[in-house]
């Protein structure tokens, strides 16, 4: 997994993830979580449009990010998931847990 971050509108922060988000990528996602923990933002968007694969370990990492945002009174938005990533998120009913947009 690779990621980049940028400021978003209305005081938000946006991360773009690419490649695979699976158990093997926990170390790099932990770096992202640490960055998120230290950042100031009103809401956080994870752009998943370039993400090609996700497993239950990756889903767990998204839930940790969601919990972190909630604790700060913010929200996490998942954006642009397609194909097999969208399929796994939908089967896992993530649309009921966090905001998902196209």
């Amino acid at each position: 997994m690779q990621y980049s971050s940028e400021a978003a509108s209305n005081g938000g922060i946006k991360y773009t993830l690419s490649g695979q988000l699976s158990a093997q990528h926990h170390p790099i996602f932990r770096v992202l979580l640490k960055e998120l923990e230290a950042a100031t933002f009103s809401h956080c968007t994870l752009n998943l449009a370039q993400l090609e694969f996700i497993d239950s370990g990756g889903l767990g990492m998204l839930l940790l990010a969601n919990d972190m945002c909630k604790k700060r009174g913010s929200i996490l938005v998942l954006q642009g998931a397609t194909g097999n990533v969208l399929k796994i998120l939908t089967l896992s009913q993530f649309q009921k847990i966090m905001t998902m947009i196209d």
Binding site: S56, L59, L63, S92
Partner: peptide
């Protein structure tokens, strides 16, 4: 709960 979706997904797939 956080990381326990693997078996459910294997059932689906």
């Amino acid at each position: 709960t956080l990381f326990g979706r693997g078996f459910m997904l294997m059932t689906e797939l």
